[in-house]
């Protein structure tokens, strides 16, 4: 496994923006030796069918993730707070994307 990783270069996380103004959304990851190659590989892997207008790449090592063991503490308290959902408004007719 160690050897395999050596052969396949470092892992980079890829974020694709589908239209200007929209957020960059995590698409997956690629292998690359440097940032230039990471952008090119992301382009070839994730935007071949016209999915993107912008690409971000980040070394996976630089991503800090939440600890799954802390899931209860982090996420459960929001389960019963219905009032935090913006579902109690009456939308004006014709208003979209709210």
């Amino acid at each position: 496994m160690e050897n395999l990783q050596d052969n396949q270069f470092d892992v980079w996380e890829v974020f694709i923006q589908s239209k200007p103004g929209l957020p960059h959304i995590h698409a997956g990851n690629v292998h690359a030796t440097d940032k230039k190659m990471a952008v090119q590989n992301a382009r070839d892997t994730y935007t071949r069918r016209g999915e993107g207008t912008s690409i971000w790449v980040v070394p996976s090592l630089n991503v800090t993730a939440s600890d799954p063991d802390e899931n209860e503490m982090l996420f459960d308290p929001s389960n019963d707070k219905m009032y935090r959902h913006p579902t109690f408004y009456i939308l004006p007719e014709g208003a979209k994307n709210i």
Binding site: N7, Q8, F9, V30, H31, A32, Q40, N41, D44
Partner: peptide, 8 residues
Amino acid sequence: PILEEDLA
């Protein structure tokens, strides 16, 4: 040589 280069 790697999947990504295959695609490229």
